[in-house]
Structure formats: C-alpha cells, structure tokens
Write a protein that binds this DNA or RNA. Structure first.
Lengths: 135, 135, 135, 135
DNA sequence: GTGGTCTAGACCACG
DNA sequence: GTGGTCTAGACCACA
C-alpha cells in the first residue's frame, strides 16, 4: 500500500485539525482503522507533517469528544469504535442528520440527477461490505 | 402559512452568512425558489433581519460563486438554476462529493445502520415530488 | 457584591482551564449566570488573570462541548442553559453519576456521618430555591 | 462470587493509579474492606494486573496521604479506617467538600431534577446495611 | 470588537 | 516514550 493514510492541504480553508479529524473518520468508516487500532502519536504525526503538536492534539481531542477515539497515557490513542458498533447517542446523530440535509439539498440544487445513487456509490466505495478484504 | 422563507438563528455557532446561504440552497432544492425567482435585495433582507448588509452580501457572493444566483443591475438577484437544470460544472460537483464523502463516512463510523436509507428519507422529505408536485 | 466571580489558583494541580470551567458551572448552578447571560470575552478574561487566551478558549471549548455555553462570533459567549432546563442527554448524566458515586464513597469512607445531609447543605448553599435571591 | 475486589480498565482515560485508589475507596466505604483488612502487596498486585509496581505504589501513596491506608514493614499495607470511625481531619474533608460542591453543581446545572435524591440513591446502593443498620 | 486557528517551544503527569 | 498543559504571540474569519 502506498496510501499515505493522511493527506493534508495547508492551503485549504478547512482547518488542519479538521482535516486530520475528517481523514480519521473516513478511515474508521472504511474499516482501514478498526476498533482498537493505534493512531500515530501526537508528536510523530506533527513531526511527519511539519505541523504543531497542539494542532494534532486538538484533532485528537475532537475525535475523543465524538467517541471515536480513546487515549491513555500508556498506549497512546486507539480507535474506540467501528461502523458495526451500536449507534452513537441521538444528540450526535441528530446533528449529523441536520448537516446531511443541507448537503444533500446542495447536490440536488446543483442538478445531480440521482443524489441517492451518488450516496450509495460514495459509501460503497468507502466501506466495501467488509468482505474478506480482497478477492 | 406565510412561509417565512428564511429563518435565522443568531445564537447558532453557524455564521449568519452561512445560514442564509444554506436556507437558499434548501429552498432551491425544494423547488420553493425556482429558476428566475427573485431574491430580496441585500438591503431589504438585511433590514428585515436586523443584520449587517455586508453579511447578506457575503451570502449572496457565495451563492453567486456556486452558480445558484445571478445578479444584474436591472432585475436584482434571481435564482440562476433549479434541480432540473443541467448539472453544475465538475469542479463544483467534485467539491460537493468530497464533502459528501466525509459526511457519509461520519454517519457510518457512528454506527448508523443504513446510511443510504437515511439519505433517501432526508431527501424525500426535502424535495418531495419536485415537479407535478401535487395531485 | 465584592464577589470576584472567579478565583483562580495557579499553584493548584487542577488545570487552569478546568478551574475556569468549574467556576462557571457553579455559577450556572447557583443561578448567578442564568441562561443567556454573557461571559467575559476570551481576551478580557485572559488579560484579567494574566493567563493565555488559549487557556481560556479551552475552558470555553469544554463548556461548549458540555452544552452549557453557546458562542457566536458576534455576541461572544453566553450561557446556554440553566438548572431548570430539561436534563442533558443520558450520556452526560451517566458519566456524572459514576463520578458522583466515587466521590460520595470517599466522603463516607472518611467518616462523614451523614453524607446526604452534607450534599443537601452544599447544594442548598449553592442554589437557594431561586427565591427573591435574598431576604 | 469470588469478588474480584479490583477491576481495572486499561483503556479508560482515568489513570491506572487513580482507578486503584478509587476502587479501594469504594471498597472501604462499602465495608468490603474494614479497618485492619490487609491489602495485597505492591508487588503482587502489580504482578496480578500486569502493571508497573510504581503505578501501584503511587496509588497506595495517595491512599496513605488520605489516611485510608497504613503501611508497616511488619504487616504490609492495611486499611487504616472505616466509615464508622471518627471523621478524617478537616483539611481532608474541606477538600472533599470543595470537590463535592463542584460535582453537585454540575449535576444541577445539567438539569438533574433532584440532585439530593440521586445522592441518596447512589449512596444507598453503595454502602447498604453497613452494620446491623436496619430492622 | 469578538472568537478561531496555528506556531514554537516549555514543563509536567503517566507508566 | 506517551499525552496534557500552558505561554507568547501572530493571523484570519465574523459581524
């Protein structure tokens, strides 16, 4: 795999900590980071990208608040849950639905013929049915 | 129903200009604002909500950049396109897809059982039969 | 009122951002900061205590995550809820109960004769029945 | 029931030494560890859980500082006091009260309807009949 | 003016 | 070694 796991764009208006958070969320959804999988240490990740440790720490902080990450001083940060685990609390999901609503509306307004089809496609391409991983 | 067209929440962490933009996008998607429909002038909208004209102008700017709004000195600002029109240029849709990807991943990672079903539901509830509409 | 609203102890092992958070929580519980009440700006509070703005920002961040604070760029940070409002999500309350359990056990183990009585006292002294405030 | 006496969660963000300390405090409060009861040696406890002896030592240190533990070279570490014994010195109780104040305030601020009732419930469920207790 | 983001670097707690 | 905390200061987004 030459997949770099993380690609950051310092020129993007999206905050770096948010980009890190997004990439991790996607990796978790895709099963690339199953529950229990370790994430790079704050220091190493920061060093690898030439960014500040505080920035990475903030990304991890958010993920922790979302319940996707658990961290102990000893073993560092590990993924706390996967797609198959019981759904997160309603409070979290409601907020997600609201954002989804706006985003789907945007696609529809822009003339995407079948938004649901795109969703299916994006999602399938993201988290293949968790088969044997390959074939 | 006098259909308020726009509801803004000044206490929300979402920037006002973003809220305006989001509401317009949703109205366009729902067909409430068909192509050619006039939007209130920057001045009147700002006055109506007691907000700064610069805030409204910024929202309109974004909508214009997205290709959803067209402004002429003659007819003011009108909706530039509707859900049925040909899709927006690729660079717009690609960006949308990227954001969609992250958002769907978030739902999946948080244990939503059938993300596509939720999308279908949210979308149907947003822009129902679109065209003939009623019966 | 000579009550300084906030007293911080830089020598305490309790992080400063946590101290700020705790004092705000107490003020909210006591009704001294009712829903909608504005908190000092990050800058002014930091300046007033000779601490860094990032430290205050972190405290506010936590309060925001707890649902006690809401902040907009315009009006700054305001209290988002009060004691009388509907209870926070179970997720939050369960965690609180667990911490309460340990803390009450501690008091009991240390020979406090009637822990419940102390709770009643502490609480009454904290949030008087919301009377006319004094008499 | 083989009563595990101690259950540690290495994935918890709560430091291990703190978990040990908390569990012992709760056991003392519940009467499961009456005054004079011996605790496992630092070495054996550490071995039993596969953790560092320094971690256990730190937990015992804290308990000793709190006055709940007494260590002699002869009899090892034994519980120094129980719920029925005379209250611990004021400086210990004052600190406890301060933390209690913050925690109760937190519950109240989060809309718990009757905080005292919850305390009663939690406590009764923690250290039920203690001695002959009821009739 | 407000808060949000990020950097560079230091110190401490945990195990 | 890990992450958590804090400082001093800069820049940007929002209204």
């Amino acid at each position: 795999m030459s997949a770099p796991l993380l690609e950051l764009d310092p020129t993007s208006p999206v905050p770096i900590y948010q980009q890190i958070r997004d990439r991790v969320v996607e990796a978790v959804a895709a099963g690339a980071l199953p529950a229990g999988a370790p994430l790079p240490s704050v220091r190493s990740l920061a060093a690898g990208f030439g960014i500040n440790t505080a920035t990475v720490a903030k990304a991890y902080d958010r993920l922790r608040a979302e319940g996707l990450l658990r961290t102990t001083s000893k073993s560092g940060s590990v993924v706390a849950r996967g797609p198959g685990d019981p759904p997160s609390p309603p409070h979290v999901l409601d907020d997600w639905r609201a954002r989804l609503r706006t985003l789907l509306a945007e696609g529809h307004a822009h003339g995407v013929p079948d938004v649901v089809a795109v969703c299916r496609e994006v999602l399938g391409d993201l988290a293949p049915p968790t088969r044997e991983e390959a074939s």
